[in-house]
Amino acid sequence: MNLLFLLFHFINHQIEFTGKSLSELGVFMKLFLCLCLILKVAYAGQAGPGDKFLVKSVDGSDLSLMKSKITKVLPAHRKVASPSFLPSVEERDKVFKESKLFSSIASWDDFDKDSLYLKLSQKGPNAIDGVLKKYPALNRTNLETAQKLILASEAL
């Protein structure tokens, strides 16, 4: 495409340089010029996501590559997809209720309940110890029941 544009400019330049008018050009040359013009108009301003823009730094050097790279690598955080790790409120509360943990933590709000659920969803022997360290009032057996239910539900 760039080659066509270069040719177009070259012919333009030749016309200006030689002082020839358009009517003096051959039919093929006229057709070629038309084609170049159509392509130039059609493609003007159609910059896609992969396009590099000519950006000059203060000293005049070309920073196109750098700019395109930064914008490609650092998109707005909102555009990053992220699967949710939280179960539904009903599912979460059902686990706590069935494991009889819920009655003892009835006053807990969603933050605390979600935090507890996520801690229990950790596999490994230290998960329950970690919870008890943070919430010593909770019953170990009930916590184990809750953890089994959570892991069995494969909600995460």
Binding site: L118, Q122, N126
Partner: peptide, 29 residues
């Protein structure tokens, strides 16, 4: 460097893509 800055943007700024367990810090976990 860019990859790391991308991670900073996603996680610390955007609060996205981390596993739920990241909300709770434990030295040995």
């Amino acid at each position: 460097v860019h990859n790391m800055m991308y991670a900073i943007d996603r996680h610390l700024h955007g609060l996205r893509c981390m596993h739920g367990s990241w909300h709770d810090y434990s030295e040995d976990e």
